[in-house]
Structure formats: C-alpha cells, structure tokens
C-alpha cells in the first residue's frame, strides 16, 4: 500500500462523500415542492365547494355522534347543480371541530393515504363590511404547503317574523274554544323545481325559524287587566294530499322532552319544551326553530303538508284572539341575501 495509492484513494473517497451528501438534498427538493399537496388541496376544495356531500337525504350534517360513521363525504354545496353556493348549516357542521376529529377531516374531506396536515378557513363577508372567520386545523407553516382558494356564496336559512296581522286576530270566535295558530309548510310549494336550489326553502336541510312578535296586539283587551295568555302546547300535524281522503294527523313525537338538536322554543327569552303551559306576556316574543333533524323524523315527502300548531288555552273567556293559518312560503318568509365568502384549503 503505497502513499500514492492512499492519496489517490482519499481524493476519490472525499469526492464520493460530497456527492452522496448532495443526493438527499436533491430528493428533499422534490418532496417539498408541494406538487402533490397542491393537487390534494385542489381536490379537497372541489369536494367541499362543488358537492353536497354524502348521504344527501337525510343530509350528512344531521348525523349525530352515534351515526358519524355513516358520513361518507363532507361537501358544503347546496346541491350538485349549484357549485360554489354553500349551505350555512353544512358550513356550521363542518367547522364544528369538537364533533369532527382530525381523522374525520382526513377520511371524509381530504381523502388520501398520507395523514396530511390541513387548515381550512372560511371568511364570510357580513353586510356591515366586517368578516366572520371560521377555521379549523393546524396553524399554517411558513411555506411548502398546497393551497387553493375558492370564492363562494353562503345561503342562510329563511325566517318568518310574524308581527301583527288583523287576519290572525279573530275576535268573533267562540270565547270558550282554545285558540290554534298554525304555521303551515306546504312542501310541494316550497320544493317547487322552478325555484333554484340556491334560493329554495328546504325544511329537510335547513331550520325553520318562526318568531311571533307583537303578541300583545292579539290579546283579548275586553278585559283591560289581561296581559298574558297561556301557550299550552306546540304540536306537529301532517297531511299527504296524494293519499285517498287526505286529512291532518298528529305526528307522534316526544313533545315534552326539550332537545336542542331537534328544536328550540323560547318564550320571552326562556327555553321551554313543546308543552310549555306557560304564560306569554304582552311584550314577550315566541320564537321557535325546527331543526332539519326533527323534520327528517316526520317522514315527509315532496307533497306533504306540515302544520306547526300553537295552542293557546286559558279557559272561558280566552285571553288571546290569535288564531288562523300562517303560510310559511316564499311570499311570507324573508330569505337573507347570499353572502360572499372565501374558502381556503391548505394541505401539507
């Protein structure tokens, strides 16, 4: 082994070591280029923005903890025909990260074998010019993540604000009979295909909001001391006009159990179940929200008519004149304008 050989071999080894140490850098450059991440972010963006998710009816966002496994895919679009128009109930469910775990987001929205890190954010512009930010996932790294930005519109549920209307103030009724005020939802009218899905009132996917304001105006003022009436119960009735001899039947439902995932009823700001049997004072508002989870229990189809009946009973004489039928339809319900938002998906 001569000195010359050692010198030559050392130079060779040094060069080899230098080259070998360069190789991982070459590969690392490939990994961090975000080629794959951008494609995954794009795909996730498409799933969220252009797809209503699966299952569609009943919609995935209604599944509770016990049925979470039935959710196959989380999409936020109102329908397949209306890409970029998101349903607010789906958005709220999606960003509820106390319900969905990171694994759920990975398996139901991102789809991929690698456990990607992610950050979803939705910035919704409010009518007053401010922004409401919804976000879930890990904080963004400084760089090297796949990214897509989608501009969307968000559809909020409609709300019926029932103030004073003389047609509901029926002063000539038998003073001993209980007063029944009905809010009627005719599904064949609501789900009319001529109304685009972006502007539809669909109680199967969105909550039904009813607020009775100005209750005092309906009180029986023949006795000036009357300042309240008793709301006995709120009940659900349905009718299927396509059946022979259609008539309204009361829907079996656990009326006396308060369950905020199915409905909320507040009188003067206090929550009640559907058999409140409580006094409604003249400046109290009755506000009732029927969630789609409840509507799905009623087994309604696109021809059904659903009645929500508020029964007031104080014996003879009755304390209120509120009676009649309010139609929950496109003429009477205010549907808020679509609001613009930006959905951002980052994956790394």
């Amino acid at each position: 082994m001569s000195l010359d050989f050692l010198a030559g071999f050392t130079i060779f080894m040094l060069a080899l070591i230098m080259v070998v140490s360069m190789v991982p850098g070459l590969l690392a450059g490939l990994e961090s280029s975000g080629i794959d991440y951008d494609a995954v972010a794009y795909r996730t963006g498409v799933i969220l923005v252009e797809d209503p998710g699966w299952p569609v009816y009943p919609p995935w966002e209604m599944n509770d903890e016990a049925h979470k496994d039935e959710i196959e895919r989380m999409g936020l679009a109102v329908s397949k025909e209306t890409p970029n128009i998101l349903l607010s109930t789906k958005v709220d469910a999606f960003f509820n990260d106390s319900f969905f775990t990171p694994d759920d987001y990975r398996s139901k929205a991102i789809f991929g074998d690698i456990p990607y890190s992610y950050n979803f954010s939705l910035n919704i512009s409010q009518p007053d010019g401010s922004y409401e930010l919804k976000q879930t996932g890990d904080p963004l790294p400084l760089g090297g993540y796949g990214y897509i930005r989608r501009v969307v519109k968000i559809k909020e549920p409609g709300a019926a604000d029932i103030g004073y209307d003389s047609s509901f103030n029926e002063t000539t009724l038998d003073p001993s009979k209980p007063r029944i005020f009905t809010v009627q939802l005719d599904f064949s009218q609501l789900l009319d295909p001529d109304v685009g899905p972006a502007y539809r009132i669909d109680p199967r996917t969105e909550p039904v909001n009813i607020t009775i304001t100005d209750f005092g105006a309906y009180l029986n003022r023949t006795d000036p001391s009357v300042d309240n009436a008793t709301l006995k119960s709120v009940t659900f009735w349905k009718m299927d006009p396509t059946r022979p001899m259609p008539r309204f039947t009361k829907i079996p439902f656990s009326y006396s159990t308060a369950d905020s995932s199915l409905y909320t009823l507040t009188i003067g700001g206090n929550p009640y179940n559907l058999t409140p049997d409580t006094k409604v004072f003249d400046n109290d508002n009755i506000s009732f929200v029927l969630k789609p989870a409840a509507t799905s229990l009623f087994t309604l189809d696109q021809n059904s008519i659903l009645d929500i009946r508020f029964t007031f009973d104080d014996g003879n004489p009755q304390s209120t004149f509120m009676n009649g039928t309010f139609r929950y339809d496109y003429a009477n319900v205010t549907i808020p304008a679509l609001s613009t938002g930006v959905l951002e998906v980052a994956v790394w």
Partner: peptide, 16 residues
C-alpha cells in the same frame, strides 16, 4: 436518479 426525479416532476406538472 436524476431521470427518476424528472419523471416525478412531470407527474405534478400533468396534474396541474
């Protein structure tokens, strides 16, 4: 090695 790396860069390119 370089050939392989070039191929994979091509994959990302074709996705976009």
């Amino acid at each position: 090695l370089a050939l392989i790396i070039n191929q994979s860069a091509l994959v990302g390119q074709t996705t976009a």
